[in-house]
Design a protein around this nucleic acid. Structure first.
Lengths: 236, 236
DNA sequence: CAGAAGAAGATTGCATACAATTTTTGCAAT
DNA sequence: ATTGCAAAAATTGTATGCAATCTTCTTCTG
């Protein structure tokens, strides 16, 4: 598979180009322009961003540390193919961390933040009503952005980074095991969460969030794919 | 400051030497052989482990991503000097994550695990009764190992890695802001946690853990050092 | 003698070179 | 056609070289 035209440089970053590459790759993985299993060769990534392999490699190594990419020695880097077990761990982690983020966010949220959430919800809705893969990708991205915005509100940069990783890996999991593409009820749930946030009702917001995560996970077909994995393990 | 004799190679790792270096540096940071602010030059780290700068650099970049090391452009890598605000975020994250780890661990813990915890407690006690910096370091390390062992029991490798990072960064924070070196009541608290674990009483274990984290944080002097940080910011 | 200016040295950021390993290709044998 | 094998091509892992930047030391000026 060719990763070519699927990546675009967002900004001309003179310094820390490795981080820029990382972000671009992460974005591409999140909105599924890069499918799980796609090979990310150092040379290709490098030439795509017009840097040497050294810089490309650094970006891939960080992504591997995050779990978004899997590096096999002497074979190279691939977009990760999370196992059902990994999927469960990812959602278990989210169920643990997101309520904590909500508790912190509720204390700090401003009217302007709510306003920004509303704009994001509008965006989600707009893309939902559009057809085509580009709109689908934008919808996925906006949906992840919702959770990341919440994480930023927590004021805890460590949790923010953990959520960065978890949201990206969730996207991979959904790409592999998702049944219905996108759970269309997700948007409504996001809206309900914003309403509860506005009332600064942490308990209710957390409850809604947990249900939301449950719904996302319920839309996955982890058991079926476990069988597939076994078949694969036996050589196809 | 020379980092020379403070690092020892644990194992001859033929593959992934970068990870081995990372682990060695992390260990050295955790038990405070490497003080916050210590410069980690690529050449020095490289020659210490007998690899080229390339490999040393990769290790440092991952550590920087974790927050254990701070890289300043064109200046190099230093053992991080967490701010009081960072310290608060680290402990806030632990207060959120460790109870979740406990909830998972309680479901899976075996008699053998308890046995292993007891051995670790014995070790802690032994080092507590010894004098000298080596015993102190061993005690610190064992104390951190307690939390990591618990994380491993959770069966969630993602949370495990988050805890790896949080424990290491906590160690840095304690090195900077700690008042009494080690809170000697820590050992007793660990013992109480193991007892509650043995009864599979998640609620009580979590409560004990939260108190334990509170005590660790209460032993810090974050306010005083904030003044220091300001002074530093003003050119000293 | 304090302080500024500048040259020398050291260190990082990045690209490239080369060896080790894996993957692909080509071809012969069954 | 398919399997087996060997050579060629491609890719990674690592070391090293060079330019850019930072640090330190010397020297000069007031």
């Amino acid at each position: 598979m060719n990763i070519g035209e699927k990546i675009v440089l967002t900004e001309a970053a003179p310094e820390d180009r490795s981080a820029a590459i990382r972000e671009a790759l992460r974005d591409a993985i999140i909105d599924r322009r890069l499918a799980p299993g796609t090979k990310l060769s150092e040379a290709e990534v490098g030439s795509l961003f017009d840097v040497s392999r050294t810089v490309a490699r650094a970006a891939l190594q960080i992504l591997a540390f995050e779990g978004l990419v899997t590096i096999e020695r002497n074979r190279g880097a691939f977009v990760s193919n999370p196992s059902p077990e990994e999927a469960r761990q990812i959602f278990a982690s989210r169920r643990l961390i997101e309520p904590g983020i909500i508790a912190a966010a509720v204390e700090r949220i401003t009217a302007e933040d709510i306003e920004q959430f509303r704009r994001l919800l509008d965006e989600e809705a707009r893309y939902m009503n559009e057809r085509g893969p580009a709109a689908r990708r934008a919808e996925i991205k906006a949906s992840g952005e919702f959770h990341l915005m919440l994480a930023r509100l927590s004021g805890n940069t460590i949790l923010e980074r953990f959520m960065d990783e978890l949201v990206a890996r969730s996207s991979l999991v959904i790409a592999i095991y998702g049944r219905s593409g996108i759970s269309s009820c997700g948007h409504g749930e996001h809206a309900a969460i914003v309403e509860a946030l506005e009332k600064r009702d942490a308990a209710r917001t957390s409850q809604l969030m947990l249900h939301h995560i449950d719904h996302i996970e319920a839309d996955l077909d982890l058991r079926l794919q476990e069988g597939m994995a076994l078949r694969n393990a036996l050589g196809f």
